[in-house]
Design a protein around this nucleic acid. Structure first.
Length: 813
DNA sequence: GTAGGGTTAG
């Protein structure tokens, strides 16, 4: 192998080491290295370094391995993870663990040197191994890195489209007190442009200037772009003027193209054309970028004459349309030519001498998707994947397909595409997940859509407000509160709830959540307590902040909210089951109801006044306050919970009556719980009804006839009437109490335009409550009510008779 | 190691 008198070059030593390593002859390697190699003072090369390091690892001499790496801190050879892996692929292709060990050694002992760290990062980014870098970074994160290292990291992640990671590394950099260079500034401007974050862009510009760096025209160009993207045209023009005024900068084609594109983005085609005309007359002539930008704008604005004029100008300058031109125009071209197949549409390109790239294919594919022709979209996908193109589908390719399958409701294909996407190592982005979610929702698979959301969030991809909205709307539509609660939970956990625009937050709270849910939120989520309280305040108009005076009321309110939801379940089940309580599935509900009654009773009686003598008075007052709250809840709060939509459905009035019955059961229970305060509840209730009717009178006086707020108003009065009827059946109110109220109501509603309301109320009272129970003596009252109904009829009203239900009388007892 | 144009929901 070795010729006499021939001095080996480093390459020959390399070969020797590598062959020996392949043969696992570690001693030969070490003898040669420690002997002849070092005696002759031959400088280590990358290749031999890798072999020696591998040898130390193989013989278990970690100490020497670490020393070797540390020795490299001074010198020209850089220990590189990438290079080590390359050597190992040749020498030890079957050893899977050695690379990991070497990686750890290099990063532990080498990365303290900026030069070694930087080179490794550049190597890894060069191989598109951003994920590896991210893991390495997390290990280094705790210490302050060199400015150059930050620069490489930021640029690497921006180039691999990991904008979020770049942004968080920049935050680390700022926190470590490292000031930006122009390179970092430029890199971060791309991030801020992407995010439309003007404030951060301006801040980093100031920081860089403060650091004594001179900002060149490239940075200013980027700044122009940020402003345009963030819809701040005036500021963009300001920078443009600064460039023109500055003696150190010279206006060029890139700046002008950026300006034109910015105007196009902002749909300012007049201004864009003006700039373009000036350009034609100036020494800076338009180029392909200029033409493609203008074409995009005119096509988007549906100005085909101007687009054609641009094409003519292009020819005059002897420039030919390129692939980008074609991609820009492809939608317009295909729509006018209406090809019948993928093959045909491709032909149109190739005969024009175009060689499509992946962008072109994606645009073409998307045209078929939009035409809802998935067969041809699939064919396009096949063509782009096969020879002679052999393109790899991108996220956009898959996402376009997903959109098509979502719209054509082809869930199996959508799921299949999603799987293919994951297998091909393409990370689904928010749009991909969005269409998967749409696919599931269209197939009525809310639960699976939810799984998607969770998976999405686990991958650190956040849905936009539109995706959240879609999910919420679907839950709302299907009245699926179980999944709905999960959505709100995820929304809350994602931190997006508070970041949502107020409009959406209030939508969630007002339209989506019931009073019961809001009540939960008061206790569960501190962040949204303020909003929940405000919503309860403005929509349901009652106090929720506990204080010395209100604690009992707030507790009472909580129990009432729970009772309300109980009564809904009850009325649903009584339709199917028995009229009497103690059998069947009702029993459990009744026990829960009893527990809630107990809570209210305890709330009233647990209070001990410090002056024993007046305790008596306090309990009386507290019973009165409790009944006030109960009345308010039954008439105002519950009435507002019944939306007009709910009222229109058949079960609505049955729900209302169930609630009235439930309230009267509670009052009866209270009556029994405080026997020494005989009739206190009756008096308070009667007082409340009286006050309510007076209030109603004033309301009616103030009300504008044209506005007709009676829809809602009618619900409030009818809630009071239901309560009154139920209380009469439950013997909380006497015949004379009801009679007074009826008389007063008839006076209030004597106007012609209110007659229909009046009649409906009276009929409901008579047929829904007064006459449903045998043996109930209400002769006078019934006569009065019938008389009033007759009066209405004589004025020309004959409403259809209602079906009677006798369930509710049974429910009160 | 720095700047400009083409593909995706709502």
């Amino acid at each position: 192998m070795r010729k006499l008198d021939h001095q080996w070059s480093i390459l020959e030593y390399n070969d020797y080491f590598m062959v020996k390593l392949y043969q696992s002859k570690y001693n030969d390697i070490l003898n040669m290295y420690k002997g002849e190699f070092q005696q002759k003072g031959i400088p280590l090369s990358v290749g031999s370094f890798n072999v020696i390091l591998a040898t130390y690892i193989m013989v278990g001499d970690t100490q020497s391995a670490a020393e070797l790496v540390k020795k490299m801190v001074r010198g020209d050879v850089v220990p590189s993870i990438r290079d080590f892996e390359r050597t190992m692929r040749r020498c030890m292709p079957h050893n899977a663990t050695i690379v990991e060990t070497a990686k750890a050694l290099i990063s532990d002992h080498g990365f303290t040197t900026t030069r070694i760290l930087d080179t490794n990062l550049i190597h890894l980014f060069g191989e598109k191994r951003a994920e590896d870098v991210r893991r390495l970074y997390l290990a280094q994160k705790s210490r302050k890195l060199d400015l150059s290292t930050y620069g490489i990291l930021l640029r690497g992640f921006v180039d691999s489209r990991q904008i979020k990671v770049a942004q968080s590394i920049y935050e680390d950099m700022v926190n470590a007190g490292v000031k930006p260079s122009t390179f970092v500034c430029s890199t971060m401007l791309t991030v801020f442009t992407h995010r439309r974050d003007v404030a951060s862009a301006e801040k980093i510009i100031q920081e860089t200037l403060k650091n004594g760096h001179e900002l060149d025209i490239t940075i200013y160009t980027q700044l122009i772009k940020v402003y345009f993207k963030a819809r701040q045209t005036a500021k963009a023009f300001h920078v443009f003027n600064e460039i023109q005024k500055s003696p150190s900068m010279k206006l060029n084609d890139v700046v002008l193209n950026t300006m034109i594109d910015g105007l196009v983005i902002n749909r300012e085609m007049e201004a864009a054309k003006l700039l373009y005309d000036q350009m034609l007359k100036s020494s800076i002539q338009p180029d392909m970028v200029t033409f493609n930008t203008l074409l995009k704008g005119f096509i988007k604005a549906n100005d085909h004459a101007s687009a054609a004029a641009v094409m003519t100008d292009m020819q005059k300058l002897q420039l030919n349309p390129d692939t980008i031109t074609f991609t820009t125009m492809i939608e317009a071209v295909l729509s006018s030519k209406q090809p019948s197949s993928a093959q045909e549409s491709l032909q149109m390109l190739t005969t024009a001498g175009m060689r499509p790239n992946i962008y072109t294919f994606n645009a073409m594919l998307n045209w078929w998707v939009k035409a809802q022709n998935m067969r041809e979209a699939e064919r396009t996908l096949d063509i782009l994947k096969s020879p002679p193109y052999n393109f790899h589908p991108t996220v956009h390719t898959y996402t376009n397909m997903l959109q098509g399958y979502a719209e054509t409701m082809d869930l199996p294909k959508a799921m299949q595409t999603f799987q293919t996407m994951l297998r091909s190592d393409q990370k689904p982005d928010r749009a991909a997940f969005h269409f998967m979610i749409v696919s599931f929702l269209r197939a009525s698979r809310l639960q699976d859509a939810m799984v998607c959301v969770k998976r999405m969030r686990a991958m650190d991809v956040n849905p936009t407000k539109d995706t959240w909205m879609l999910l919420l709307d679907e839950c709302h539509l299907r009245r699926d509160w179980v999944v709905g609660a999960e959505v709100v939970q995820e929304l809350d956990a994602s931190g997006a709830l508070m970041a949502l625009p107020n409009e959406l937050l209030l939508y969630v709270l007002r339209r989506y959540l019931d009073l019961g849910d809001l009540w939960q939120l008061l206790q569960v989520s501190r962040d949204i307590r303020f909003f929940a309280m405000d919503t309860i305040h403005t929509r349901w108009k009652f106090e929720v902040t506990p204080s010395a005076e209100t604690t009992m009321k707030v507790q009472c309110r909580a129990a009432l909210i729970a009772l309300e939801s109980l009564s809904c379940q009850l009325s649903l089940q009584t339709r199917v089951y028995t009229l009497q309580y103690p059998h069947g599935p009702e029993t459990d509900l009744m026990q829960r109801e009893e527990r809630l009654h107990q809570r209210i009773i305890r709330g009233i009686s647990s209070y001990k006044h410090k002056y024993v003598l007046i305790e008596d008075i306090d309990i009386r007052n507290r019973i009165r306050s409790a009944v006030d709250v109960i009345f308010h809840h039954a008439v105002f709060v519950a009435a507002l919970s019944r939306s007009p939509v709910r009222l229109a459905c058949t079960h609505a009035s049955s729900n209302n009556r169930a609630l009235a019955a439930m309230i009267v059961r509670l009052l009866t229970r209270l009556d029994a719980a405080f026997p020494s305060y005989c009739r206190e509840i009756t008096y308070t209730l009667a007082d409340n009804i009286k006050a309510f009717l007076e209030y109603t009178g004033y309301k009616l006086l103030a009300m504008n006839q044209q506005h007709d707020p009676l829809v809602l108003y009618n619900m409030v009065i009818s809630a009071c009437f239901d309560l009154m009827g139920a209380a009469f059946i439950g013997k909380i109110l006497s015949e004379s109490h009801v009679e007074c109220a009826v008389q007063r109501t008839c006076e209030l509603l004597s106007d012609d335009h209110l007659r229909s309301v009046k009649r409906a109320l009276l009929v409901d009272l008579l047929e829904g409550w007064l006459t449903i129970k045998r043996g109930l003596v209400a002769g006078e009252l019934c006569r009065l009510v019938r008389l009033e109904i007759d009066k209405c009829d004589r004025h020309g009203y004959a409403a259809p008779r209602r079906q009677l239900t006798r369930h509710y009388a049974a429910l009160i007892e």
